[in-house]
C-alpha cells in the first residue's frame, strides 16, 4: 500500500516538476541534435541529388548499406562527434538528476527554476560520489549472476537443442533487468536520503543505509522500478514504431516525428515521476526518523507522507542516529 501511495504521490506533479521533465527532455534533444548535425549534412549531400535515394524512405536496407559502404570515411566523419558528446553529456545528466532529486525530496511548492538549479549545484558532487559508490557496488553484485550465467552457458556447451539458447537468453534478460532495476533503486534512494538529510551524514553511511533499505524493501521497490523502466521504454518505443511506418507522405513524416518527441517527453516525465515516487516512499521515513520522537506527519500537498509507513523498525534501521 505504501508503494501504491508513493506511486500516486509521485505522479502529482507541481509546475516545477514539469519544468524539470522539460529540462531532461530538452537536454537529450539538444545533444541528440548536435550529434546528428554532421550526419544530417553528409546524408543530404549524398542523397539529395540521387534518384536512387528515393528507395530509402521505403526502408531499403540494401541502399542504406550501400550508402554506408560507399564512404566509410564519410561515415566516420558523420558520427565521429558522438563519443565526445556522450562524454560531455555525462556531467550534464548528473547535474540534471541532482536537480530532479533535490526537487523531488522537497515538499510543498518549489520555485521552478531557482530551486532546481540550487539543488542541482549543491548536490552535484555528493550525488556523483553516490552514483560512483553505487556503480562499484553493483559491478560486484553483477559479477555473481554474470558468473552464474557464464557457468550455465559453459555447462550447456554440449547441449544440442537450440531451445537452450532461448532459455539462456531469457535467463540473462531477467537477471540483467533485475540487476539494472536494483542498481537504479540503489542510486535513487541514496540520493533521496542525501537530499533529505543533507551533509550531516557522510556519503558512505548514507549509501550503505539506503542500500540496506533498498534490500529490505526489495520487492515493492523492484516492482516500482521495473514499472517505470518499462513505461519509459514503451513511451519511446511507441514513437519508434510509429516512426518506422510513418513516412508515406510529408504530413505523416511530420506527424510521426512529432509523436516521437511526445514519446521522449513522456519518458522524461516518467523519469521525474520515478524520482518523486522514490522520494515519496523513502523521504517520510527519513524525516520521521530525523525528528525524535517521531511525530505524526501532517498531510501536506501531493507529497503527503504515508502515515502507516513509519514504524520503529524503519526508524531504527533506516535513519541516522
Amino acid at each position: 500500500m505504501n508503494a501504491l501511495r508513493a506511486l500516486k504521490n509521485g505522479f502529482l506533479f507541481r509546475k516545477a516538476d514539469l519544468v524539470a521533465a522539460a529540462l531532461l527532455y530538452a537536454s537529450a534533444l539538444l545533444f541528440g541534435t548536435l550529434a546528428l548535425l554532421p550526419a544530417r549534412a553528409a546524408l543530404h549531400a549524398l542523397l539529395d541529388p540521387s534518384p536512387e535515394a528515393a528507395k530509402l524512405p521505403g526502408g531499403d536496407l540494401g541502399i542504406l548499406a550501400e550508402a554506408l559502404m560507399k564512404a566509410p570515411e564519410g561515415s566516420a566523419a558523420a558520427f565521429g562527434n558522438v563519443p565526445l558528446l556522450l562524454i560531455l553529456f555525462l556531467p550534464v545528466a548528473l547535474l540534471l538528476s541532482a536537480g530532479v532529486y533535490s526537487q523531488a525530496a522537497r515538499r510543498g511548492e518549489v520555485r521552478a527554476w531557482a530551486d532546481f538549479w540550487t539543488g542541482a549545484v549543491r548536490n552535484f558532487w555528493p550525488f556523483l560520489g553516490l552514483v560512483l559508490l553505487n556503480g562499484v557496488l553493483f559491478l560486484f553484485v553483477g559479477l555473481v549472476p554474470g558468473l552464474a550465467l557464464a557457468g550455465a552457458n559453459h555447462a550447456l556447451k554440449e547441449a544440442t537443442d537450440p531451445a537452450w539458447d532461448v532459455r539462456l537468453a531469457w535467463a540473462a534478460l531477467a537477471v540483467a533487468g533485475l540487476w539494472f532495476v536494483a542498481a537504479r533503486n540503489g542510486a535513487g534512494l541514496a540520493r533521496v536520503r542525501r537530499a533529505v538529510l543533507g551533509p550531516s551524514e557522510g556519503l558512505g553511511p548514507c549509501f550503505l543505509a539506503s542500500a540496506k533499505f533498498a534490500f529490505r524493501r526489495f520487492l515493492p521497490l523492484t516492482l516500482l522500478g521495473a514499472g517505470f523502466v518499462a513505461a519509459r521504454w514503451a513511451a519511446v518505443w511507441a514513437g519508434g514504431v510509429w516512426l518506422s511506418a510513418g513516412h508515406g507522405s510529408p504530413g505523416r513524416t511530420a506527424a510521426t516525428a512529432l509523436l516521437l518527441q511526445v514519446g521522449f517527453f513522456a519518458a522524461a516525465v516518467l523519469r521525474v515521476a520515478e524520482a518523486r515516487t522514490q522520494a515519496a516512499y523513502y523521504g517520510p521515513l527519513l524525516e520521521a526518523g530525523r525528528s525524535a520522537p517521531p511525530a505524526p506527519v501532517e498531510e501536506e500537498g501531493p507529497e503527503a507522507a504515508p502515515q502507516d509507513s513509519v514504524s520503529p523498525g524503519d526508524l531504527a534501521d533506516d535513519t541516522v542516529a
Binding site: L24, Y25, S27, A28, L29, F31, G32, T33, A35, L36, A39, R40, L43, H44, L46, L47, D48, P49, P51, A53, A54, K55, L56, P57, L64, V82, L85, L86, F89, L90, A93, L94, L96, S97, V131, R184, R232, V236, G239, G240, L243, S244, H247, P250, T253, T256, A257, L260, F264, A267, A268, R271
Partner: peptide, 29 residues
C-alpha cells in the same frame, strides 16, 4: 531539383537512435 526527403527520412530515424541514446543516459544516471 534535389529531393531532400530521403535524407530527411534517414535523419529522422537516426534522430530516434541518437536522441534515445542521450535520453537513456539522462535517465540512467
Amino acid at each position: 531539383k534535389p529531393d531532400r526527403r530521403p535524407a530527411g527520412t534517414v535523419t529522422a530515424r537516426l534522430r530516434f537512435v541518437l536522441q534515445g541514446l542521450f535520453a537513456f543516459l539522462a535517465s540512467a544516471i
